[in-house]
């Protein structure tokens, strides 16, 4: 038997696989397919201080080997998450990661504060959303604002804090170093890449929001590259994601430097995605004489 468990920010994860925020709701829908307790953890839908209705539809456009989405962080707000989703989720034997977002650093901190004392194992701070105070550019595209929001959340909670990085930047290692310096316990990456599709028969963008975030198999090589760069730039552990569709993909991200791996859009194609990936990883390890999955983390031998 291969040992699949990993230590991530001092927490034991039974395996490295975590469904990615926004692709798995709060787990209820996928629970009809399998027990959530089989997962290493769950990153739940992004939660904000107040309920949000999100963007108008269409919110999805297919792309070669992937998709664009413009959901716009529709969610019921942190209070509903605590009163309605958490009691159910915390019955599962898996790590609960609360993904949070806000339009200002104070708002993010406020959400984190409300999670103190709740059955949340980890907070994942999404810094890809527009920062209203700084003229709407995402927190995550500037090292100073990224550090500022990380610090605000860090000071608001003692729950282990992972900061989710945006790939829509010139140098992702700069942002990673900034949030590490501001007290993050881990980083996760990549969030979606900004993209666009046009219906050439109508001349209209397919998304009502015109632009949206690209995810799915198409982004995988970018994820591998960024995880590798960030893992080499910071000392804190990395949670890798972006286009993972198989156990081999997950292992590749781990070799690049990820300790845990999130699986997003592929869940839509294959509702058993996470379970299949865990089983494929186990098989691969067995075949290659890997007794402990931890032994492959960051083992890529660059030329």
């Amino acid at each position: 038997m291969t040992k699949l468990n990993v230590n991530f920010c001092g927490l034991d994860f039974k395996n490295p696989i975590i469904p990615a925020s926004g692709t798995f709701g709060y787990g209820r829908e996928y629970e009809k397919f399998y027990s959530l307790s089989r997962l290493g953890g769950i990153s739940v839908k992004g939660t904000t201080l107040n309920p949000r209705q999100g963007n108008p539809a269409p919110r999805v456009a297919e792309t070669p080997s992937g998709m664009l989405n413009s959901v716009g962080l529709q969610n019921g707000g942190v209070d509903k998450f605590i009163s309605y989703e958490l009691p159910h989720l915390s019955k599962c034997d898996t790590r609960i990661i609360a993904n949070i977002a806000g339009a200002t650093a104070e708002e993010c901190a406020e959400v984190a504060k409300k999670l103190n004392g709740q059955k949340v194992d980890m907070i994942e701070l999404n810094i890809s959303c527009p920062n209203v105070k700084q003229g709407g550019a995402a927190f995550g595209t500037n090292p100073c604002t990224a550090a500022e929001v990380t610090k605000a959340v860090r000071n608001a909670t003692s729950i282990p804090l992972m900061v989710k990085l945006s790939p829509n930047v010139t140098d992702i290692t700069e942002i990673a170093k900034a949030v590490e310096g501001a007290g993050a316990d881990a980083v996760s990456l990549i969030n979606t890449l900004l993209g666009m599709r046009i219906d050439i028969n109508t001349g209209r963008p397919i998304l009502k929001n015109n632009v949206g975030g690209l995810s799915g198999a198409a982004v995988f090589p970018i994820a591998v590259r960024m995880v590798w760069q960030v893992a080499n730039a910071v000392k804190i552990p990395v949670c890798g994601m972006g286009g993972v569709c198989s156990g081999e993909d997950a292992i590749e991200l781990m070799m690049a430097g990820a300790t845990t791996v999130q699986v997003g859009a592929y869940n839509f194609q294959n509702p058993y995605a996470c379970i299949d990936i865990i089983e494929q990883m186990e098989k691969w390890c067995k075949k290659h004489g890997v007794n402990d999955i931890k032994d492959i983390i960051g083992t890529v031998k660059p030329w």
Binding site: G22, G25, E29, P58, R59, V60
Partner: peptide, 17 residues
Amino acid sequence: EQRMACGIGACLVCACR
């Protein structure tokens, strides 16, 4: 009709007013 991804209520892309 609306464009969909998961089809089961998890991804929230198939919104309608």
